[in-house]
């Protein structure tokens, strides 16, 4: 199942679904997500479960409904000024996630049993953060091959 938008494309394996989009700029400071002064950049959400529509950039709303066999992947793009800087010096999309890279302390929002992993990188001269959440840390070895396959099938094209 191929998905393509905003210079990012992926070919999702069986059981996975995704969204590639740019969040709209909030109109008022009262908005729960985002800041009126921000310039939103593309965000990719990939998961091996049904993604809810009400999701935060790093999966809030989606991680809440995950079970032990679920994986959530977010590719969050930062501004062009960040590309190739020290934090984003790693080149290319990480495609070899291993269980020891995951920790409950890396979660944006701590939920029992879950573990997360955050990697910053540059691809196609664009700065990204790969944020991955597994539904159960002890099941990471079982579910990460699917996440790695999905990431391997993802391409980020230069702007």
């Amino acid at each position: 199942m191929k998905l393509k938008a905003h210079g990012i494309e992926t070919n999702l394996p069986t059981g996975w679904e995704g969204r590639i989009g740019v969040r709209t700029t909030p109109l008022a400071t009262s908005s729960t997500i985002g800041d009126p002064n921000e310039i939103p950049h593309p965000i990719v959400h990939l998961a091996n479960f049904a993604l809810p529509e009400d999701r935060g950039d790093f999966g809030s709303g989606a991680v809440d409904i995950m079970n032990d066999q679920h994986v959530f992947v977010s590719l969050f793009e930062y501004g062009p000024e960040c590309a190739n800087t020290a934090l984003f010096s790693r080149q290319g999309i990480p495609t070899k996630l291993t269980p020891n890279m995951f920790s409950a302390s890396a979660l944006q929002r701590t939920l029992p049993g879950q573990a997360g992993c955050q990697i910053f990188f540059t691809a196609g001269n664009r700065a990204f953060c790969l944020y991955t959440v597994v539904g159960k840390q002890s099941a990471a070895a079982r579910v990460l091959p699917g996440a790695n396959a999905t990431l391997s099938a993802t391409r980020i094209n230069p702007r």
């Binding site: 199942m1 998905l3 938008a5 905003h6 059981g15 679904e17 995704g18 969204r19 740019v22």
Partner: peptide, 11 residues
């Protein structure tokens, strides 16, 4: 503008 994929089968 944004891309969406929804898995219907095998879920």
């Amino acid at each position: 503008k944004d891309a969406v994929s929804i898995r219907i089968q095998g879920v």
